[in-house]
C-alpha cells in the first residue's frame, strides 16, 4: 500500500485481505503505477505545473445502479452516509461531492450513466468569481476551496456549470483529518488531493477499478505515456459543456 499513506477503513481492508491478490490488483488496475513508476513528490516540495491531473470516465463501463465510486468518496472524505452529523439538512441541502447522473437520449432512448463531480477546469468559472480567492486552482490543475478564507457567499456555486459544489448548511462533527469540512463554507471534489500529494489515486478511481467496472482512469494529462493520455489519444474523451471552453480535467468517453 505504498501508494497511499492513509488508513483505509477496516471493511475495505478486510475485503482486500479476503480476496487475496486483490491488493496487488488494486494498484495494477489503475495502470498509472505500472507505466509510470511511482515518483513520490517530496513532502517539502510544492506541486508544479509540470503535471496536470485528470480523470477519464468510460461511460460504457460505468454500471447502471453501481455506486462504488460514490461510496468510496463518502468514506474517504467523510460526507453523505459517512458523516451522520449532517442530519438536519434536507436532501437538497446535503453536500454531494460526486453523484451518479443518468441521461436518456430523447431521440434514441439510449440510457447512459456517469459519475459527475468537480471537472477541475483549466479555466474554472468558480475561481474567477470568488471575491476572496478562496476558490483556487493548484499548479497541478486541481481546483480547491481554501475554507480558511471562504466567507460562504456561494457565488462559486452560482458560477459552476456542473453544480459540482455544495455549501455546508449545519455544524458538522467527526470530519476526517485529511478532508476538513465545516458549516458556512463551500466544498467540492478535491480529486483526493491528500492522496495525490502522496502519490496515490483518488478514492473513486481506486474503488471503481478494485470492485466495479474499471470505468475510471486517473493520471497526468501532460505525460503522454500515462495510461490516461494514451487512452485519450486513442479513443478520445469529451468535455461536458465543451461550448464553454473550460478545458476540463475530467473527460468522458461514450457520451
Amino acid at each position: 500500500m505504498s501508494d497511499t499513506s492513509k488508513p483505509m477503513d477496516p471493511s475495505r481492508r478486510q475485503f482486500i485481505s479476503k480476496t487475496g491478490a486483490a491488493t496487488g490488483a488494486a494498484m495494477i488496475a489503475p495502470g498509472v503505477f505500472l507505466t509510470t513508476p511511482a515518483q513520490a513528490k517530496p513532502a517539502d516540495q510544492p506541486v508544479s505545473n509540470d503535471k496536470r491531473w485528470g480523470i477519464l470516465v468510460d461511460t460504457n463501463k460505468c454500471g447502471n445502479g453501481c455506486n462504488a465510486c460514490i461510496t468510496a468518496c463518502e468514506e474517504e472524505n467523510g460526507w453523505g452516509s459517512a458523516n451522520p452529523s449532517e442530519d438536519h439538512s434536507s436532501p437538497e441541502q446535503k453536500a454531494q461531492w460526486i453523484r451518479k447522473v443518468t441521461i436518456r437520449d430523447k431521440a434514441t432512448q439510449h440510457v447512459t450513466t456517469l459519475p459527475l463531480m468537480c471537472q477541475h477546469c483549466e479555466n474554472p468559472p468558480c475561481v474567477d468569481v470568488c471575491p476572496t480567492g478562496a476558490s483556487f486552482k493548484r499548479e497541478d490543475g486541481i481546483v480547491l476551496v481554501d475554507k480558511h478564507i471562504c466567507i460562504g457567499c456561494r457565488y462559486c456555486m452560482m458560477a459552476c456549470p456542473y453544480k459540482a459544489r455544495s455549501f455546508v448548511h449545519e455544524d458538522l462533527k467527526d470530519q476526517k483529518p485529511w478532508a476538513p469540512r465545516g458549516k458556512g463554507t463551500v466544498e467540492s471534489c478535491t480529486m483526493c488531493v491528500h492522496r495525490v500529494d502522496e502519490d496515490g489515486t483518488p478514492a473513486c478511481v481506486e474503488a471503481c477499478n478494485a470492485t466495479a467496472g474499471g470505468a475510471l482512469r486517473f493520471g497526468d494529462l501532460y505525460d503522454e505515456n500515462s495510461e490516461i493520455s494514451r487512452e485519450l489519444k486513442q479513443y478520445g474523451g469529451k468535455e461536458i459543456r465543451a461550448d464553454l471552453n473550460l478545458n476540463t480535467g475530467v473527460r468522458y468517453r461514450g457520451i
Partner: peptide, 10 residues
C-alpha cells in the same frame, strides 16, 4: 503552504 502548494511536511 499545504492548502495552496501541496507541501505536506508534518
Amino acid at each position: 503552504e499545504t492548502m495552496h502548494e501541496g507541501i505536506r511536511t508534518r
